[in-house]
Design a protein around this nucleic acid. Sequence first.
DNA 1: GTAATGTCTTTTATCGTGAAAAAACATTTT
DNA 2: AAAATGTTTTTTCACGATAAAAGACATTAC
Lengths: 300, 300
Amino acid sequence: MSKSNNVYKDAFNRCLRLLDENKSLPSEPELGTLLGVSRTTVRSILARMEETGLIDWNKRNKTVLRAPRPEDFFPEEETDSLAEIIERSFMRRLLAEGAEAGMQINELELAREIGVGTTSVREFLIRFSRFGLIEKRRNSHWVLKGFTRAFALELTEIREMFELRSAAAFAALPEDSAVWVDLDMLEVQHRQLASEIATRFNEFSELDERFHRLIHRASHNRFIVDFYDVIAMIFHYHYQWNKAEERQRNEVAVQEHLAYIAALKSRDPVKVDAACRKHLKSARQTLLTSIPEGRQAQPA
Amino acid sequence: MSKSNNVYKDAFNRCLRLLDENKSLPSEPELGTLLGVSRTTVRSILARMEETGLIDWNKRNKTVLRAPRPEDFFPEEETDSLAEIIERSFMRRLLAEGAEAGMQINELELAREIGVGTTSVREFLIRFSRFGLIEKRRNSHWVLKGFTRAFALELTEIREMFELRSAAAFAALPEDSAVWVDLDMLEVQHRQLASEIATRFNEFSELDERFHRLIHRASHNRFIVDFYDVIAMIFHYHYQWNKAEERQRNEVAVQEHLAYIAALKSRDPVKVDAACRKHLKSARQTLLTSIPEGRQAQPA
DNA sequence: GTAATGTCTTTTATCGTGAAAAAACATTTT
DNA sequence: AAAATGTTTTTTCACGATAAAAGACATTAC
């Protein structure tokens, strides 16, 4: 089957949304940057848009003929990359009951179950291994270490070390640094979310990630910045399948963020340290209480 | 060409050395654990040993007929795994002059140059990416970030954070912990090396790694333990191609280790912190001075 | 002459395939 | 009956092949 054309389909869908109001499309290279794809893909998109009567395309002229209809879009599930599909499948298994530590992971079985080639599964597992949840036995199978209490504790230990350092670095940044503008914007968005928390609490995750990534970036250390990928991954999947108390949890977190932001703006290292510690402590608590007690590592 | 039988060849060579004095070989499963391979491979080894007249093999009886001769061994270069071959080739390029930051990495070209399939190169690059020296552009090439001064500084920053914490944890370990025995053994080996430093200075690398890994393990944190892989990799290759002042450097380091060990054994947190800091500082200095000034990151 | 379009080439992503190695099952030996 | 050997099955590792996507080069338009 070689390669799916999900890049094209996803870009096509995004391009449809772009179309809406404008009465004419920009040049091919411009569209390419806008959609984050190559000109080759842009041209495939334009070709199809012409075919389906969405635009009239003649060299530089790309006139929009009609607004896109629901049936113009490619189905959502066809726009995911293989890596995303495999990741979702794998995480579902991992966080499901019965995924005990010590369990073996079988590439071939996974590949068959998901309906993809072994190569893609292998590559996924290699990429995934840096999250510390699986381990390779040379020339043999992978071993699941499990999403255990120990894992959560080790993860949060590093997170706290890294974030305290990043927050301190952040506060020490010069007045004219661009980060203060970003921080102001995030503050506004936090306030808006706080005022409508009852209905929009599920939008917090995304804001949370942007906020913490901004702080981590102040460390100017690639290992610290990259480590946030591990945290983001865990939070993303863990909370996606664990909605208990979500509203309450996020409401508290938003307030902690606002206090944290205020501390950063004060640029007082002591206040920053205190606000950061407080938020991290409650984040750890939340993560820990959501791990079922039964999920313990098996003796090796 | 599918898969090379380097596992068999390497195990065969190691088995030859085992053969030497003993007049009879253990059971197949026992040999398997000894050599770290499956019984299937053990049987291939035994089969060849019988063929070449090294042993007489009849079921449980594996009598050694003669001592192995040099020509019995498989050539060294045939015992390396593909991953090792690719890693070496890649690192040679990376540390060679002209490997500037920002440079593109081409999977196909690398594969052709090394003479292996693209899949193996891809998998290597994915595994290697966690070292923070390369980065993937989605659906496109890899970008070399380069072994720059910035990289060395970011690496050592994390190393120092992690090792200070691990050393503190180490010193706090109970008297009856097994680590104290390991530490005593390492101390003896350090003293031996110190007394013969003139001739054996090149054996330090290996001792260095074992010492630091022992300390890091005391953190009981997989992220800290795993991070030492990054450090070990950098040190391994960097010093392999940079022998300037090696003897002098190692002589100093051995003494610092001995002081560090003494501090750990005193179990006094203040002394431990001081000894650890001192050693890490000089390690960082050594690494930094060995990076050519010209090697700077290019603006993006 | 710069920036677009048109065309051609190269590289990446993915699969199926086959040998090496591991693992599972069956049989024998002590 | 426990542990070894003998046999068969399954899985991992690595390759070449192929379509998707990116990139490079040539040509045209403003």
